[in-house]
Computed example of a mutant assay.
Amino acid sequence: MLTTLALLMSLTAGAEIAAASTQDVDVELVLAVDVSGSMDLEEAQIQRAGYVDALRHPDFVNAVRDGLTGRIAISYFEWAGTVRDSSHIPWQIISGAQEADAFAALLEARPIATRRGTSISGAIAYGAKLFDENSYAGMRRVIDVSGDGPNNFGAPVLPARDAATALGIVINGLAIMIRPSAAYGSLDDYYSNCVIGGPGAFVLPVQEPEDFAIAIRRKLILEVSGAEPPARLIRAADTAVDCMIGEKLRPNYMDRLYPELDK
């Protein structure tokens, strides 16, 4: 009896300690940033500067302070065909300008380099796991995915998106269309149909370099505040968006899919 009582007391104490170590925040936000080879150096630099400027902007800081708890938890990583753990900036609290500036400085100090492949599915899967590694309790959990092309490496994007949203994670998109490719049509339509998901999910397109910083700041403010984004009219297409278009455009895709055709 004493042994059982001691065990119950230890479990209760452990639960109380765990509860005490969990900090409430308005949102747990993961920034998943594209560094795939389709991003040239200029685009990569514009993207980095956009995130740094947005995090330091007074409007972003004020949006954080205006939340119910007045703080958010934020993390960051870069992705291409794979995700390197070395690109991950661990979870940190932002509740004011000093913390926002410190987080922006960590991004600013990172070297800029691109890598091969575009695995949006891998980025979503990696981002979803990060929520299990923190000690925060957010009213919302959001993965913010930026990218300039469709998924073309690793697992298909739809199962990864659906697995994340089934966990209550919202996925928003930033479609970088500064140098659009006609090969797969409109990237914002692709993101709307194949990448984003969850309650209130949205995608913002960026078509001009000078709009990048404004779009990122607007996106972060919407994610932090939880406000509904303005209605976005999606152009009606003659055919449904093909969520495997990136994979199909890869060299030798058909040969890998139907090897018997080579015989």
Results as ranks from 00 to 15, higher is better:
Ala113Trp: 10
Ala20Tyr: 05
Gly226Ser: 04
Gly168Leu: 04
Asn151Thr: 09
Ser36Gly: 13
Ile169Leu: 12
Arg115Tyr: 09
Ser192Pro: 00
Glu78Asn: 00
Met1Ile: 06
Leu130Lys: 12
Ile94Val: 11
Arg115Phe: 03
Arg110Val: 10
Ala97Cys: 08
Asn62Thr: 14
Val61Thr: 14
Lys263Asn: 12
Thr239Pro: 06
Pro230Glu: 01
Arg84Glu: 13
Pro58Ile: 08
Ser95Met: 15
Ala100Thr: 13
Glu247Gln: 12
Glu260Arg: 10
Ile245Gln: 12
Met177Arg: 01
Ala227Glu: 14
Val195Gln: 09
Ala49Ile: 06
Tyr126Leu: 00
Phe60Asn: 05
Val142Asn: 00
Thr69His: 11
Pro230His: 07
Ala125Tyr: 01
Leu130Thr: 10
Asp238Ala: 10
Ile94Trp: 05
Thr82Gln: 15
Ala182Arg: 11
Ala102Arg: 01
Met39Ile: 13
Gly138Asp: 05
Leu5Thr: 11
Ile89Thr: 05
Leu2Trp: 10
Thr4Trp: 03
Ala32Asn: 02
Ser121Trp: 02
Met177Ile: 13
His57Ile: 04
Phe131Cys: 11
Gly67Phe: 12
Val27Asn: 04
Ile89His: 05
Ala49Gln: 14
Arg217Glu: 05
Asp262Met: 03
Gly226Cys: 06
Leu41Arg: 01
Ile196Cys: 01
Ala80Arg: 01
Leu222Lys: 07
Ala227Ser: 03
Asn152His: 01
Ala105Tyr: 06
Asn252Met: 11
Glu99Gly: 15
Val33Pro: 01
Cys194Tyr: 08
Arg65Asp: 13
Ala18Phe: 02
Asn172Trp: 08
Ala6Tyr: 03
Cys194Gln: 09
Ala175Ile: 06
Glu247Leu: 12
Ile178Tyr: 09
Ala54Pro: 06
Ile234Phe: 07
Pro229Gln: 04
Asp242Gly: 08
Gly198Met: 08
Met254Asp: 07
Phe153Cys: 02
Leu174Pro: 05
Val203Met: 02
Ile169Val: 08
Arg218Phe: 03
Arg161Ala: 13
Asn252Asp: 15
Ala20Asp: 02
Ala155Thr: 07
Tyr191Arg: 00
